[in-house]
């Protein structure tokens, strides 16, 4: 499809991403026998936060104020690199996956620094855990992409996903899809502060990672952080959906619908995981992430040829 159509999925991501949280919430409500919040609640939350004033700690510096906007800017840049459908990404080049991962590293870097800027022990604790787990998650993610690159002989995200859907030579790679898909799913859960790594529901600071890092943010800043979180989930989910679903092999109009459907299905899956699992003890989280890395490594080994 033409390049000009790439803007449509980007717009969809910008508009639809908070909706993922509604889906997760509804799924959890279903399992809990509750009715759940209105479907548009995440939008209302963000809109309310964006209308508020602000309270800043006297310890904080400009780093604290730049953190949320720089985080959102990096997710937006990552969004431009994400292939969100058959038309590929807005920007694509050989090796863009490295930039993609490092843009999330930028987001993490500014979030962690903003947390440390408050001088709060709680936020230091969250920041410390965040950098520990993400170092392992990054390796697992890179290994997964490496396996896909070996399978498809491409090194750009768009190229990889395109080849996964279209090329006949990759059809021998079903186990690879499955292994990389499960590895990426674990990384997605860890990176987006979901169970079993982090608990987005609780406000008990001692057990949290991401939520505790943003304790001191409020108002507009918090709204930006939440929106960036929605986009991050959407971006990673669409990547995972692209790996698992053979979107390119069917008619393009149909495939344009397959991907969003896959993303929503993923949100349901996250809701199921969150309803049926307890949070892991923090010392067990590295084992989970290393296991994700091992799955990706296995995928690399079983790549045919």
């Amino acid at each position: 499809m033409e390049r000009s159509w790439s803007a449509v999925p980007v717009l969809m991501a910008l508009v639809m991403s908070p909706f993922l949280f509604s889906v997760i919430n509804r799924t959890k409500a279903f399992f809990g026998g509750r009715r759940g919040q209105p479907l548009l609640q995440p939008y209302a939350d963000i809109a309310k936060l964006l209308r508020k004033g602000a309270v800043y700690s006297r310890t904080t510096t400009r780093v604290f104020r730049i953190g949320p906007v720089a985080g959102l800017a990096s997710v937006l840049a990552a969004l431009a690199l994400t292939p969100l459908g058959p038309s590929g990404a807005l920007v694509s080049f050989e090796g863009d996956v490295v930039l993609f991962v490092y843009l999330f590293a930028v987001m993490r870097f500014v979030t962690v620094l903003a947390a440390l800027d408050t001088g709060s022990a709680f936020e230091g604790m969250g920041a410390s855990r965040e950098v520990q787990f993400s170092a392992l998650g990054e390796v697992a993610f890179f290994l997964g992409i490496t396996a896909l690159a070996a399978l498809t002989h491409r090194t750009s995200l768009s190229g990889i996903l395109d080849a996964l859907g279209n090329s006949p030579e990759v059809h021998g790679g079903r186990p690879v899809h499955f292994l990389v898909g499960s590895s990426l799913f674990v990384v997605l859960l860890a990176e987006n502060a979901r169970l079993p790594v982090d608990d987005p529901e609780t406000h008990l600071e001692l057990t949290m990672i991401h939520e505790v890092m943003v304790l001191d943010h409020g108002g507009v800043d918090l709204g930006l952080i939440q929106y960036a979180g929605c986009l991050k989930l959407w971006v990673m989910a669409s990547l995972l959906a692209g790996v698992v679903l053979p979107a390119g092999s069917v008619h393009t109009v149909a495939s344009a619908a397959i991907l969003p459907a896959g993303i929503l299905a993923l949100a349901v899956l996250i809701g199921v995981v969150e309803s049926t699992m307890a949070r892991l003890r923090l010392v067990m989280v590295p084992q989970l992430l290393v296991a994700a890395g091992v799955l990706a490594l296995l995928a690399l080994i079983v790549v045919p040829g």
Partner: peptide, 24 residues
């Protein structure tokens, strides 16, 4: 993007109450 968002955030906050307090 970062600079633009930062500027936008500054503009938005300009007309609102911005207080300074202790860390939570």
């Amino acid at each position: 993007l970062t600079l633009a968002l930062f500027w936008l955030r500054d503009r938005v906050l300009a007309g609102r109450i911005v207080r300074v307090s202790e860390t939570w």
